[in-house]
Design a protein around this nucleic acid. Structure first.
Length: 472
RNA sequence: GUGGGAGUAGCUCAAUUGGUUAGAGCGCUUGGCUGUGGCCCAGGAGGUUGCGGGUUCAAGUCCCGUCUCUCACCCCA
């Protein structure tokens, strides 16, 4: 049996030299924008304890299904397996660690580990790294993928930090020429206040939310059928359908008509109890502040209030956002985030750690960039090669390469093929611009070929270095 | 995790209702020609048709399993 047969594990990929270079360039570009906004880099391990990943006391539900867990090792594993067979299985587990499935939970753990050093000062950081989810792979969906997170901890403000996250993200996307992005904004509490106000039980709210979230993807009839299949009272079904009819004309997929937070309150007064209304008003007011301030700082920022936005991750406590492209060829979002004011405390950190973050999907950005404009990221400086032809033997090539490298110029060495045209073609495929082809003695000089111009030059070493350094 | 579609040479694809030794272009390679750019001529290598079973006189083709990709769910970046 050939164990090396086949590729990497499902949903994971190899990156060759070209792709690796593109990835490094993309990371560079994203980091530059983040640093401009004062975010500092951090990193954390690939693994965390299951206690951390599952949120300490909570039994993980949806997240747990997607998590890669790490088997205990050695005696601990034997003991666990033995105990499990003989005693209560829920007391012990065969796993104690897991691969992180996002960067927010590890960050929250990082803050609770290091909060004494950080001393409650506003802490802004960015984190670019791989995460793992045991999802079924699909286009734009992988089991190992990079996320690019920016977060602000001790972000005690109604709108300022949200707006900064949007501006920083907008700058990244514009730098990548992804100008058709848009930001959808809501608050996790809006739908739940509204639905509980209608009389829907708290445990059914998320089911209803998930169905409603599909309003843009599916036909209205299908949505109605899905709502009915949840099994609520007929009266509640009707209320939900009424709500959708009233609000959905303002949720046009073309992004032309979006309601304001005060519109939302006006349209849905009937569904709200006095108490729900009182809770909702400050939330909607904060939405309004975020929108107004974002727009005043960047009038072109494509940000919309979308009360039907739903996020599955349960650590969000307030505003939530999702970033997508208007291009219908990309049905998936390219980023998302929100406010998680209690996660850090849940993981053993201090109370009063308001936090908000936004994550971009690195692989999706890269995929879109490559599909839209292959050349966008691939520009690199002039490459230099030394051709080991019969006229320039190995004995001359390597010392010369070293001399050029000592000047800080990267050089590769190639062996020429028999056919000159094919040799040039090979060098072009390797993005070479300059090739040293021949060495002459007394006085020493070199025949240099510019592959772009298809022209030869005869230069001394100093002239050679000068030209290579000057060239764009 | 559930359900549909796909998988043939390094790449892009052929191969009649199951029927000879699975082909072509590009690429690679050998020699010739040319002698500082992709030409031309003559040859060559490269495939357990994703992998493993089954049906059949006969399987790339039909059936089952499995892996990977893909689409729709689920969920999300």
């Amino acid at each position: 049996m050939n164990v090396l047969q086949g590729g990497p594990p499902r949903g994971m990929r190899d990156w060759g030299p070209t792709e690796s270079r593109l990835r490094m360039q993309l990371i560079q570009k994203i980091s530059e924008s983040y640093q401009l906004y004062g975010f500092s880099p951090i990193d954390t391990p690939a693994m965390e304890t299951l206690d951390v990943l599952m949120g300490k006391n909570k039994g993980g539900d949806e997240n747990e299904k997607l998590m890669f867990k790490i088997l205990k090792r050695g005696q601990a594993l034997k003991t666990s397996l033995h105990d499990e067979a003989t005693q209560e299985p829920e007391v012990t587990s065969e796993s104690d660690l897991g691969l992180r499935y996002d960067l927010t939970v590890p960050l929250a753990r990082f803050i609770s580990t290091h909060f004494s050093e950080l001393q409650g000062h506003v802490f802004r950081c960015y984190h670019i790294g791989p995460v793992w989810r045991a999802d079924r792979p699909q286009r734009g969906r992988f089991r190992e993928f990079y996320q690019c997170d920016i977060d602000v901890i001790w972000a005690h403000h109604d709108w300022m930090y949200e707006v900064e996250l949007f501006l920083a993200t907008s700058r990244v996307l514009k730098a990548l020429q992804l100008n058709d992005f848009y930001i959808r904004l809501s608050d996790k509490r809006i739908l739940s206040l509204l639905f509980t106000g209608m009389g829907i039980l708290p445990q059914d709210v998320s089911k209803v939310s998930i169905v409603i979230d599909k309003i843009r993807k599916k036909k209205f009839d299908e949505i109605i059928r899905e709502i009915e299949s949840i099994g609520l009272h007929q009266e509640l079904n009707q209320k939900i359908i009424d709500f959708l009819k009233k609000n959905s004309s303002y949720m046009d997929p073309s992004m032309k008509y979006f309601m304001t937070p005060s519109d939302f309150l006006k349209f849905n007064q009937d569904y709200l109890t006095q108490a729900a209304r009182q809770s909702l008003e400050p939330i909607l007011h904060a939405m309004q502040s975020i929108l107004e301030n974002a727009k005043s700082l960047d009038p072109s920022l494509p940000i919309f209030f979308d009360p039907i936005l739903v996020r599955g991750l349960d650590y969000y406590t307030g505003p939530i956002f999702e970033i997508g492209l208007k291009d219908s060829g990309y049905s998936f979002s390219i980023g998302g985030g929100g406010r998680y004011d209690s996660l850090i405390q849940t993981l053993g950190g201090p109370a009063d750690t308001a936090a908000v973050g936004l994550s971009l999907g690195f692989e999706r950005l890269l995929m879109i960039l490559l599909e839209r404009n292959k050349d966008f990221l691939s520009a690199q400086g002039p490459q230099v090669g030394i051709l080991l032809s019969p006229k320039l033997t190995e004995g001359m090539g390597i010392p010369l390469a070293e001399q050029i490298r000592n000047q800080g110029i990267p050089v590769s060495i190639y062996v020429s093929k028999k056919d000159f045209g094919k040799t040039m073609k090979m060098l072009e495929a390797a993005s070479m611009q300059w090739i040293v082809m021949e060495q002459h003695e007394a006085p020493r000089s070199y025949t240099i070929r510019n592959l772009f111009e298809r022209q030869n030059y005869q230069w001394s070493f100093d002239e050679l270095i000068q030209h290579l350094k000057m060239n764009p």
